[in-house]
Amino acid sequence: MPKRLSNNLRLMRFLADEMTQAELGNQVGLTRQTIAAIEAGKYSPTLETAFRISEVFGKPIEEIFKWERQNDES
């Protein structure tokens, strides 16, 4: 079964005072569209960007990004 990178960025943004995609993008150096693509699973960020995102939310990287089987995705 193929695995893929999933994330709970949307939940993290919601918990961070409903941070917008544009605000998150500005903080990590991405466009709003790229944040939307990451949330939709259409783009996997570089490791450096993943660390920058985890830094913004003050969470370890594995709490935001998960390497799991496709059908395990909720």
Binding site: G25, N26, G29, L30, T31, T34, A37, Y43, P45, T46, T49
Partner: peptide, 9 residues
């Protein structure tokens, strides 16, 4: 004023 490109682009 908007960011034009990033690593995905």
């Amino acid at each position: 004023g908007e960011r034009v490109s990033d690593e995905r682009d």
